[in-house]
Write a protein that binds this DNA or RNA. Structure first.
Length: 564
RNA sequence: GGGGGCGUAGCUCAGCGGUAGAGCAGCGGCCUUUUAAGCCGUUGGUCGUAGGUUCGACCCCUACCGCCCUCACCA
């Protein structure tokens, strides 16, 4: 049985440590083991002057190892740990229980021995005592290290420091001030950290660093973790809602040879083996409606879509969209669905609250929501102007300073709408019955061919949802596609989606469809001002990487074969 | 793409045409109930990058890089 040297005392490593004190060492590579020797055989890195810093095999003379750039005292500690036979990155450690579980019903558990694990924060030395907080996914608890209970650990306590991951076994108790505390009887280093933690009080504030190094942002700023947990809860609730109404969750192609289902510029890519141009989808819509033709009747997809357009606090080039389609329903059914969804979100995400704060204002998300017709809104904010009076609308656009030359009438009119109406839509409010000309995939109302059965949900002036009675007339659909092709631009497909029209020719049941931006919905429910605050890794410009002494990495799309 | 702002130690931030500063973190010392612990001492900088003006530039000017806000496009 392997025995490893432990800080201050020898213990039976594989035996796990009942009664063992100090840092537990696993029975894996110590400094004398073959594996450790292999690593140690590499050149000593000249940049670690004076340090007992074992260079990585890759770091030949003249090159800079990435880890050479970091605080030398941490590297010194790392090597000191190895020299003492304490693996800084052990393969396995004792299994912990969640800290939140220790804190629940704490009084009754005082005196019990628990094993908890996490990242050490805010180490406080106090003579022959040392306190720290231990943070795991569930909560944070104080750990007390006492010299007299941890003689082996105490001598080398400084080798384990703030930001390291540790597993602590100890007795639950309180301090004189009443703070719940694990009084450690055994400390196992789980993972040595080579970087300093950000400032303990202010955390990581620099916005750019927070986005680029979200991993630091997450363990440093509790509110950020909360936002992303809420985001997961939102997605979970959306799934629960649609599953509860008999919908089936599906996945459709992201790589599409013809893009459609929205008006947006796509990203282009290329498949090598097929030598085929492809687009990253701007919407899953046309594939989901093919599934209606296929008889699935109620489908939804929550997935990433990609739009090659500007970036703003409300726009990320990739974002997560919910789209749902329900056969034998129309946009009124879907309006009721949206209200039902928001009721469930209030219940499950907001814990029964219905009022959210967003950008300094409050919004009551309790359904039913206000409903207003597009054309009424248009007239109201433009002195009674008729949307379909092209000449008057163009004059109004000119008054507003909007460019209209060369644009179709309905586009100009919609620009006027957006300029004059959208900002007034505090909401939540459904705007419904849109001009059909700006809705190429929506069905016209039976009573008025100029009106599309469509609504959008606005909250805080932000478009959150979009729905309509789906166009299922193949002849009409082909005509509208052809009209799009006539004034073709980068936002429209350059060819007719023949297969989609064919699918409609096989018969799509009348259906109501819905799209909701999951990122914006999360923004609303977490009071996040920017979409970048609800996306883990928002797209940023690439910055020059530090010189790591390697040959130029090839184009990832045409990388060299693995063997060569 | 236009306009405005920002970039100084690992982190949070001061600074000023005349030798680069503080707090936290780190390192050394004291303290067995601290908790933004405290006290004493101390290490740490290509002031985003490159030019220019100047006797002298972190500071003034120009260009570039990156981020934020805003307008335009969009969800």
């Amino acid at each position: 049985m392997a025995r490893s040297r432990v800080l201050g005392a020898d213990i039976d490593a594989a035996g796990g440590g009942s009664g063992a004190r100090g840092i537990l060492a696993c029975a894996c590579a110590g400094p004398g083991s073959p594996r450790a020797s292999a690593a140690g055989a590499a050149a000593w890195n000249p940049r670690c002057l004076g340090l007992s810093c074992r260079a990585f095999p890759r770091a030949a003379a003249g090159t800079t190892n990435l880890t050479d750039r970091i605080a030398k005292d941490r590297l010194e500690k790392l090597e000191a740990l190895r020299a003492k036979g304490v693996p800084p990155y052990p393969a396995r450690v004792p299994s912990p229980e969640p800290i939140a579980g220790c804190l629940a019903g704490f009084e009754a558990r005082i005196g019990q021995t628990v094993t908890v694990a996490g990242r050490l924060t805010q180490v406080r030395d106090f003579g022959k005592l040392r306190f720290s907080h231990l943070l795991d996914r569930s909560a944070s608890i104080q750990v007390g290290f006492q010299r007299d209970r941890l003689p082996g650990f105490w001598e080398d306590r400084r080798l384990v420091e703030a930001n390291d991951h540790v597993v602590v076994t100890g007795e639950l108790g309180r301090t004189q001030k009443g703070e719940p505390t694990v009084w450690a009887t055994q400390v196992v280093l789980a993972s040595k950290t080579l970087r300093h933690a950000p400032e303990k009080w202010h955390g990581l504030q620099d916005v750019e660093t927070r986005y680029r190094m979200r991993y630091v942002d997450l363990f440093t700023n509790p509110d950020v973790r909360k936002v992303f947990v809420t985001r997961a809860r939102v997605l979970d609730t959306v799934r629960a809602f649609f599953n509860g109404h008999g919908y089936v969750e599906v996945e459709t192609p992201i790589l599409q040879s013809i893009f459609g289902g929205a008006t947006a510029r796509p990203f282009k890519t290329h498949h090598n083996a097929l030598d085929m141009e492809l687009y990253l989808r701007i919407a899953p819509e046309l594939y989901l409606k093919r599934l209606l033709v296929g008889g699935l009747e109620r489908v939804y997809e929550i997935g990433r879509v990609f739009r090659n357009e500007g970036i703003s606090p409300r726009h990320n080039p990739e974002f997560t969209m919910l789209e749902s389609y329900e056969a034998y329903a129309d946009y009124r059914t879907i309006m009721a669905r949206v209200e039902g969804l928001f009721a469930l979100l209030c219940e499950r995400v907001l814990g029964g609250n219905t009022v959210v704060r967003f950008r300094g204002r409050e919004y009551d998300l309790r359904p039913p929501f206000r409903k207003v017709r597009y054309l009424d809104l248009f007239a109201e904010h433009n002195g009674g102007l008729d949307f379909f009076d092209a000449r008057a609308v163009r004059a109004r656009a000119a008054d507003l300073g909007l460019a209209s030359a060369g644009l179709p009438d309905e586009k100009v009119a919609n620009d006027v709408f957006e300029a004059t109406c959208e900002k007034t839509l505090d909401g939540p409010v459904f705007v419904h019955d849109y001009p059909v000309a700006i809705c190429p995939l929506a069905k016209a109302a039976d009573h008025d061919p100029r009106i599309a059965e469509r609504f959008e949900l606005f909250v805080a002036g932000m478009e959150v949802g979009n729905a309509f009675s789906e166009l299922n007339d193949p002849v009409d659909q082909e005509r509208r596609f052809r009209a799009q092709l006539e004034h073709h631009d980068e936002e429209s497909p350059s060819e007719l989606d023949v297969d989609y029209v064919t699918a409609l020719e096989y018969g799509m049941p009348p259906a109501g469809g819905l799209g909701i931006g999951m990122d914006r919905l999360t923004m609303l429910l977490t009071d996040s001002a920017s979409i970048r605050d609800v996306v883990f890794f928002p797209l940023l410009r690439r910055v020059a990487a530090p010189d790591v002494g390697l040959e130029t990495a090839g184009d990832p799309g045409t990388q060299a074969p693995a063997g060569g």
